[in-house]
Design a protein around this nucleic acid. Structure first.
Lengths: 144, 144
DNA sequence: TATTGTTATACTCTATAACTATA
DNA sequence: TATAGTTATAGAGTATAACAATA
């Protein structure tokens, strides 16, 4: 057994900080996501959605949209391509790669989005519809 | 020049997802934090606050509170100790290390918290006092 | 036997600098 | 000259498995 009764840690100034509370919420959401959508991260699903909604988009445009360095995209895309979820096709400007989901990628994305529906229900389980809308609005005021 | 006029990327289903909007907000906050508190991450400051508020806390207790593996703490604490910000002292249960901030650690934490005050003002700049409180409350409903 | 800290190892995400091929 | 993608390299943060010291 492990009923070892330890007083909870004092959190000092942290609970008053918006950044800290946001980080805690994000970590809780991340843990539920990992259980709900095994084998894919929020970032990976986000990338697949972006490519699906912008077929032929280049790596650089994606990097710009995500505020990441070009070189960061290479490995991230390599991993998704290695799983057979996307293709790089050389563009008419032959410096560029256009990105497309493969049929397997579209199927995997569809399955992930089904799982995410349940995940979203769980994380918002303790919010009313009004509160959920209000939370989205307030988060928007922070992200610009 | 780079006035290259590109249509913004379509975001597909993402903007309707609470998890996505939370992640965007968190990333925006993280970027401002990095500019505001150079050389320290939110996680590192959080750890220093926890040790400051719980002097002598063991690595295992910290790992448990942060929901991280024991082995994860080793490297994280090594880095802060290498910067001279904390000490490990062997406990009376000689399997344990008690953790304490050094004087330099307390000074560094004080400086970081001063910077964080400005950071917090900036990220909440577009929220009224009421909205800020409401956001904290709603985030709490998500983190448990 | 169980717990604490550690090591060895591995993987993801991130960046900077330098290279290549194209434009 | 400038841009797109890549490589080499580095560092933080995360995990699992196994080990030594201690309880």
């Amino acid at each position: 057994m492990s009923g070892v009764r330890r007083p909870p840690l004092a959190e000092g100034v942290l609970p008053g900080l918006l950044g800290y509370r946001l980080r805690l919420a994000q970590q809780a959401v991340f843990r539920d996501f990992a259980k709900s959508v095994p084998g894919m991260s929020p970032g990976q699903v986000g990338l697949l959605v972006l490519i699906d909604a912008n077929p032929g988009v280049t790596q650089s445009r994606l990097a710009e949209a995500l505020q990441r360095d070009r070189s960061t995209m290479v490995g991230v895309l390599d991993r998704l391509q290695a799983k057979g979820l996307l293709e790089r096709r050389r563009g008419s400007d032959r410096r560029t790669n256009g990105l497309w989901l493969t049929p397997a990628g579209r199927r995997a994305l569809g399955r992930a989005l089904e799982r995410i529906a349940g995940h979203e229900r769980r994380i918002a389980a303790r919010l009313s519809a009004t509160e959920r809308r209000e939370l989205l609005r307030l988060l928007g005021r922070i992200s610009d």
